[in-house]
Amino acid sequence: MRVWGTVSDVAVQRRELKFKKPGIDRFFHFVVTTGALVSLLVLGLIAVFLFLRGFQIFKDMGLSFITGSLWEGTGAPGEPTTYGIAPMLVGSIVLSLVAVVIALPLSVAAALFIEFYTAPRLKKFLVSLLDLAAAIPSVIYGLWGFFILAPRATEWAISLNHLFGWFPLFHVPAPFFDGSPFIGGMVLAVMIAPIITSVAREVFSQTPPDQISAAHALGGRKWSAIRYVALPFGRSGIIGGAMLGLGRALGETVAIYLVVNIAFKTNLNILFTGSGNIASMIALKFGEASQYEVKALLAAGFVLFAFTLAVNMFATYIVNLSKRKSA
């Protein structure tokens, strides 16, 4: 018994020694923790601030801030003032959906091509090209969209309308095709395709090579191995990548501002002129906004923020899920 007691005494002493941090370490901890908390504070503050500032608007307008489609007044006493972001909320969703619908199939195919059809050196080059394409500033995409893509896309829109005009989505109330959600969505598609492609490619690259060689050894050609092994394996990564792209498209400001005819109206005829999203509305209105209207814009910013956050969280969750599966 005596011996046991001695041993545990020693152990306790040791532990105490280890826990007594030298002053320099305590200082180090203090600095690092402060730094982390400051960034936490700065970032957390934005959400809190947007919400608090917007809160008055949410209270004054109620649910009609989301569902209403009028944006009028300055909030001065006696002036009828209503703020509703429905057209821009719908616009954000329509523009991003057009973008994802165009970009997703092309991106998945491009990811398959880069991962399974190219020699290693070409693959390396193409991966760099993807990174670079993802880093091109949106104002440049906007410039290109306006001068290069839009004239052509307008022609395509006319042909689409000509062929499928009977379908409500491709119907136009009047023959004006410029600055439409279709064209805006296409520019967004070009912008988000690098993101979707690189996420999808990364997931495909983790396909177990054993399974692919098993597919070949059982008589599967390349497409069969892709269809039955790589695609099912990468499914959640593809969904996650698409959601990340969606998140980026939802918050895009400048490219939309330059390419789309910003109009405060709900437009579900994607080939017809005029649309907009919350971000471009904020950019358009903040300069001449009254104090009360700035609060309304902050509230709109909060809605955009919450929406994007939810989409991004979901995307991250799904991508991590597929990473864990492969690990």
Binding site: L40, G44, L50, E252, T253, A283, F286, G301, L309, N312
Partner: peptide, 23 residues
């Protein structure tokens, strides 16, 4: 918390950051 917030904020639309500093 730090990890969650940095993760969440990396997807924030840039216009929101602009709006925050503006207001």
């Amino acid at each position: 918390l730090v990890r969650f917030i940095t993760q969440a904020m990396s997807g924030v639309p840039s216009i929101v950051a602009g709006l925050f500093v503006y207001s």
